[in-house]
Amino acid sequence: MSRRIFMGIFEREEDILGAARAVRERGWTIVDIHAPYAVHGLDKVAGFAPSRLPWICFALGVLGAGLKMWFEYWTTAVSWPINVSGKPWDSLPAFIPVTFEVMVLLAGVGTVIAFLLSAGLRPGKRAVLPHPRVTDDRFALLIEEADAVFSPVEAAALCAKFHAVATEEYEA
């Protein structure tokens, strides 16, 4: 299903911050913001939902630690019990370092993979840029046109107020 997008292009970070704030105050929905670098406070102004990645990271960490702990217990105490310098077979302190490493490995690598999946960044993926200069020196604000309160004329006026260098409407 395609939707109509209204896009404003800005030259300065103050302008994109101001424009994004004004758009939100009108009750319009911001689809996305493109900026050449991380702008402080932009995610707060845009009102995006907080990332779910930390929870994935935590769950993967718990999973990695649990699986590794179980695997070490199973190998040294159940499947093939080995007597190491007279220590008990289920010697927990000896399992901790490897458990820690596997927890960090699974949480770290898994979170990167989860990010790539959720962002759709597979190998060979072509970059979809709303404007060719958003990786260089332009800021792009993408507003959804589906809202009943949305008006392209007002949107153009709003963008002009924040010194937009261009506005455009397109199907995405």
Partner: peptide, 12 residues
């Protein structure tokens, strides 16, 4: 804390 504990526990 664990580094100190584990080495001492291990070497015994």
């Amino acid at each position: 804390w664990f580094s100190q504990y584990m080495l001492i526990w291990y070497a015994n």
